[in-house]
Simulated assay, not measured.
Amino acid sequence: MSMGSEENPGVGSWDLDPFEELRRLWRAINDGSHIGVPHIVGRASVVNGKVSGLEMSVILYETEKEYSFRDGDDVYFMLPARPEDGIEGIYVRLNRLLGGAQ
């Protein structure tokens, strides 16, 4: 299990637009922040530093939690999605988390 690292540059490239997925989730992230801490949970296919598949949804927790683990080419993850970080900030955290998954 990896907790992410500021030293990790993240994954090398994406075969899809992660911002499109994050924009799709933005309302749930923003609305959820009024009743709990929104988190993105999902699965990404990462091969040789390249993301080729991504599934994400939003859940709420009382506190921030961040986890990731690799199973073959799939990385399963959960990370806090703070509205104040904006879509770009959430993308940076996601990219680092996927690049550091063990």
Rank of each mutant, 00 (worst) to 15 (best):
M1G: 15
M1N: 13
S2C: 12
S2A: 14
S2V: 12
M3I: 15
M3H: 15
G4K: 13
S5L: 06
E7N: 11
N8T: 05
N8W: 01
P9M: 14
P9S: 15
P9K: 02
G10Q: 01
V11E: 03
G12W: 10
S13K: 10
W14E: 03
L16G: 01
D17V: 10
D17C: 09
D17F: 06
D17H: 08
D17Q: 06
P18K: 00
P18I: 02
P18F: 03
F19G: 04
E20Q: 08
E20T: 00
E20F: 06
E21Y: 10
E21S: 13
E21R: 09
L22R: 05
R23S: 11
R23Q: 08
L25Q: 14
L25N: 09
L25S: 13
L25Y: 12
W26N: 05
R27H: 12
R27W: 11
A28V: 08
I29L: 05
D31G: 01
G32P: 05
G32R: 07
G32V: 07
G32I: 07
H34R: 09
H34N: 03
G36A: 07
G36W: 12
V37K: 13
V37R: 15
I40N: 12
I40T: 02
V41L: 07
G42Y: 07
G42C: 03
G42N: 03
G42E: 04
R43L: 08
R43D: 09
R43Y: 01
S45K: 15
V46N: 02
N48T: 06
G49V: 02
G49Q: 00
K50F: 01
V51H: 00
V51Q: 03
S52R: 09
S52K: 02
G53F: 01
G53Y: 01
G53K: 02
L54E: 05
E55P: 00
E55D: 09
M56I: 06
V58F: 13
V58A: 11
V58Q: 10
I59L: 14
Y61V: 00
Y61C: 13
Y61T: 08
E62T: 13
T63R: 15
T63S: 10
T63E: 15
K65R: 15
K65E: 15
K65N: 14
E66I: 13
E66T: 09
Y67I: 14
Y67S: 12
Y67K: 10
S68V: 11
S68I: 05
F69S: 05
R70C: 05
R70S: 10
R70T: 07
D71S: 09
G72E: 02
D74V: 03
D74P: 01
V75G: 02
V75P: 07
Y76T: 08
Y76D: 04
F77C: 10
F77V: 10
L79N: 08
P80T: 11
P80V: 10
P80W: 04
P80N: 10
P80Q: 01
A81Y: 04
R82M: 13
P83N: 06
G86R: 03
I87V: 12
E88I: 03
G89M: 11
G89K: 12
I90V: 15
I90S: 07
I90R: 08
Y91H: 05
Y91F: 15
Y91L: 08
V92C: 02
R93A: 15
R93Y: 06
N95Q: 13
N95A: 05
N95S: 11
R96C: 09
L97D: 06
G99Y: 03
G99W: 00
A101V: 11
A101Q: 09
A101H: 05
Q102D: 14
Q102E: 14
Q102G: 13
Q102N: 12
